[in-house]
């Protein structure tokens, strides 16, 4: 088998490429995970105690909620959202969400950056004050 060395070399290259993300973490970045993003609540958000839905739900499902809101507003001519506690909110990212969370940079962006997601909501929806998104 004269091809033996080529096969072994090929396998070796494959293994290195395959393991490269792990090797990068173990050898170069050794145990240094990025610190968990620390979210800041504005006084207004703190005073409200709870968002439009319970906090655990908001933490994991806020994107689904926003998606449903936009469907209802744009396609369903519905503008108001009433939660289980009977509280009513206008369904608006800029005017309801960002009214409490007026610190987009320390609230939205920080966690999005940590999770390495780049939602393009802000391409259209205004975000005053400007955040720290890159």
């Amino acid at each position: 088998m004269s091809d033996k060395k080529w096969i072994i070399l090929g396998l070796l290259i494959f293994m290195v490429l395959f393991l490269s993300p792990f090797l990068y973490n173990v050898l170069i970045k050794a145990g240094k995970a990025a610190p968990m993003a620390e979210l800041v609540l504005t006084p207004k958000a703190k005073a409200a105690k709870e968002c439009v839905m319970p906090t655990p739900y908001m933490r994991t499902e806020h994107m689904q909620l926003l998606d449903e809101w936009r469907l209802k507003v744009v396609r369903g001519a519905q503008r108001d959202f009433t939660n289980a506690q009977g509280k009513t909110f206008e369904m608006s990212l800029t005017n309801t969400c960002l009214d409490c969370h007026s610190n987009k940079a320390e609230f939205c962006d920080r966690c999005h950056n940590y999770a390495s997601v780049r939602p393009y909501c802000w391409d259209c929806h205004l975000d005053n004050p400007q955040g720290e998104m890159k």
Binding site: M53, Q64, E68, L71, G76, Q78, T82, E90, M91
Partner: peptide, 18 residues
């Protein structure tokens, strides 16, 4: 599937002055 996971208790309405 359409995102309809907010549960049964929530309500949507056009707003009082519409």
């Amino acid at each position: 599937a359409p995102a309809a996971q907010t549960g049964p208790q929530v309500e949507f309405s056009p707003g009082p002055n519409a």
